[in-house]
Design a protein around this nucleic acid. Structure first.
Lengths: 228, 228
DNA sequence: GTTCTAGCAATTGTTCAACAATCTGACTGA
DNA sequence: TCAGTCAGATTGTTGAACAATTGCTAGAAC
């Protein structure tokens, strides 16, 4: 973590100057969001204003607009007069994340009017492929796609956005601790079970399975988090 | 709508200068949020930067940070190079609001571990009192308290925040049209039914009643919105 | 009279430079 | 060893400046 921002973020600078006379703040926010989600900016890392302005090629005021956006998404934590840091999730954060998921995902399975499960099947297939290939990031990504897809069944932009946000925080949880590389592996079949139960029309049962799955995952993550 | 900001917002100026060397942007945001929620800034109203800076006693940069916050809450709508306006909810917005509520509220009734219903009873009592007193704002406010209280059963800050946000948008919906003064009156008894069913332990039935209630309310609001 | 266009004024988007407030860390003196 | 204090760095906020965009208006063309 002793690397400078220039070393970590080589290609962050805005290429063309005329990217449009509006939304530079949102552009900067999405840039940072991307790099944080990809793990290039680890939890706890300090985002100093001046170096970041330099790297991004925006002014301090614009950068602060970006910080305001990311802080509201809980991706970044602002400590007054101290600075902005990539959020390092606490045990309470993990509990809150799963609290949200235990309402959102079962609700989607229970009351969604949509039942197009193509993307869900695709996500599971991708997860299985990643498992046989031994790709941990692949499994993690496919797993997130599955659960994002479940909430997408609601057809609600806002619930989808909230889920996206929560899943981004999940990535921070994984980055902030040494998680078991095989964490996702056993859950792939759980997802498949949930999906087939849902497709058979037993929605209440699918929701129950989902709650159960989420409880187990939470417990396991909290244990790993406690270990360090 | 031809009034100037100074006429509408007489007491918005920051009183003491030393309110603390941090969070001025959040302070400005909450100031605007309050006045919008209270209806003193009607949907569609333009929030020009320069006059507002004058009235609030903050700089344009700080005000823009506040705008970024409010825009993310959908309280305010930003049109590039045109300005910031108090959101005027569309029919689609209403549908999205109720889509969110139809997942959040039944989910809270179904899977919340908490069952403390004091605040819910209190809200219903307040609604009834407002009804006999003929106070439309009183009924509206008590009704919102009830439904916010339902989601509060989840004990999740984020779901609570999302509900708060959605209810703020509901206020904008009412402000942006001539709603039937008796809109809330018949729903008070629905709320009471839902609560007693929930307390009897029939959670699934309570959730069903809630979904039904929300569908009826949505339909009625959409009709009113279509009329003008 | 209508439609199109050029150009001007007003407003937003963004940057820059400055200063105030606060934190950090190191140095001091018991 | 341990408080106190003092400079240096960083954040919070401001005001002014300039660039880009929009909307309006006054004519020009038909």
């Amino acid at each position: 973590m002793g690397m400078t921002l220039d070393e970590i973020l080589p290609d962050l600078r805005r290429q063309s100057v005329d990217v449009r006379h509006a939304e530079t703040g949102l552009w900067a926010a999405s840039m940072l969001r991307e790099h944080i989600s990809a793990g290039q900016l680890a939890p706890g890392a300090k985002l100093s204003e001046e170096p970041l302005c330099e790297v991004l090629g925006v002014s301090r005021n614009t950068l602060r607009e970006a910080f305001a956006t990311l802080a509201q998404e809980h991706i970044v934590t602002r400590i007054p007069n101290r600075g902005v840091f990539v959020t390092r999730p606490t045990a309470d954060d993990i509990r809150e994340i799963y609290r949200v998921r235990r309402f959102l995902e079962p609700a989607a399975l229970t009351w969604s009017t949509d039942a197009k499960t193509d993307t869900l099947h695709a996500a599971i297939a991708r997860a299985r492929a990643a498992r046989t290939a031994g790709s941990v990031p692949g499994m993690a990504s496919a797993n997130q796609d599955f659960h994002a897809g479940v909430v997408a069944l609601t057809k609600s932009d806002r619930l989808g956005a909230q889920m996206t946000q929560v899943l981004a925080e999940m990535r921070l949880v994984f980055y902030s601790m040494v998680a078991d590389p095989l964490f996702h592996a056993p859950y792939i079949d759980d997802n498949a079970d949930i999906l087939s139960t849902f497709e058979s029309g037993e929605r209440a049962e699918a929701a129950t399975l989902m709650v159960d799955y989420l409880r187990r995952a939470e417990t396991q993550l909290l244990a790993a988090h406690a270990r360090g």
